[in-house]
Amino acid sequence: MSLIVEKTKDVQKRLTNHGVAFYTSGRLFLEEHYVLAMVGKAGLNDLHMDGNTRLCAMSAAASMRESFGSDGQRGSYTDIKYTDCLFIICHNISATQTFLWSRMLDRLEGPDPPKVIVIDPRLSNTAKKATVYLAPKIGTNMANVIGVEELRKKVKTYNPTYVEEVTGIPASKIENAAEIIGKPPSMLSNALQGVYQSKQATAPACQINNLNLLRGLIGRPGTGIYQMNSQPTAQNN
């Protein structure tokens, strides 16, 4: 600690308080985030404090702003009670959101369980509950276009056989997933770090939004989008 104080004072003399930068974890408790802010903001009056939340929370927020104009979630946890389809993208809910997973398990063990599609390169415990599990090759999660007319033209070449060549996912599974996504009157989509912590994180997050928008599965019971992000206290960062 003496060394940290010594070096900090040296930087302050040469570069002002703003010569010190803080890069913080999302894994701290709320109280630890508070103490860190007291040291950096109240103590040093430092402009340069950033957190790992930029890798995930910011991508989720940016996709929501781009698609809907604000970064609030487009859905409620109560929608789990009513949805016909759970669409889970690179999100091992059984490990990262255990209470949310309990709600989903209640539905899956109930009298009218929803279909479950899981996209994840890893065969997680969440993926083991999937009706259809899709494991794409890394880096094949998105073929980008801008505008719905360009999408209509582009998608004509993306038949299941071609997509299997690109992603490594069997064409039969792609067809099953497409049928499940294309038919239900409600669908609840959610994503986590497998989407956000990549170099194009905001774009694939927007594509998840687009799937719900193209089908009109938004703003009704059982429909919505959870752009989940980081550990629960990370927002305090």
Rank of each mutant, 00 (worst) to 15 (best):
G40D: 07
L108E: 14
M228Q: 08
P113S: 12
I138K: 13
V155E: 04
T157W: 03
K115Q: 13
I80S: 07
V148P: 01
G219E: 10
L30G: 06
N190H: 13
S25P: 02
T83M: 05
I119Q: 12
R103H: 13
T98L: 13
T233M: 07
T202E: 01
R14K: 12
L36K: 04
M228C: 10
M104C: 12
K199H: 03
D71V: 00
D79V: 02
G19E: 07
G69W: 07
Y77Q: 06
G69S: 03
V20M: 06
Q197Y: 08
M187G: 06
Q97L: 04
E6T: 15
Y162L: 14
N229H: 05
L151E: 10
V11I: 15
L44W: 00
T233N: 08
K13S: 13
A57Q: 10
M187A: 15
T157C: 01
P114R: 05
A130R: 06
R220C: 02
S186W: 15
A61D: 08
A60M: 01
N144V: 09
S70R: 08
L28M: 15
N141F: 11
F29G: 11
S94R: 09
Y34W: 10
S59E: 04
G219R: 04
Q197N: 11
I174P: 10
G139T: 08
Q200N: 15
G110E: 03
Q97M: 02
S67Y: 00
R74Q: 13
A57Y: 03
T96E: 12
T167E: 01
T78G: 06
N212D: 01
G147Q: 09
M187P: 00
K153H: 01
N176F: 04
I80R: 12
S59Q: 14
Q97G: 01
K154N: 06
E31P: 04
Q193I: 15
T8W: 02
L192F: 14
S2G: 07
T98M: 12
N144M: 07
A201H: 07
W101F: 14
A203G: 05
K156Y: 05
Y23Q: 08
N125P: 00
P170G: 08
G19P: 09
K129N: 06
P184I: 02
R122A: 09
K13T: 14
W101C: 11
Q235H: 06
N210R: 08
N17K: 00
R107I: 01
R107V: 03
R54N: 04
K115F: 10
S25M: 05
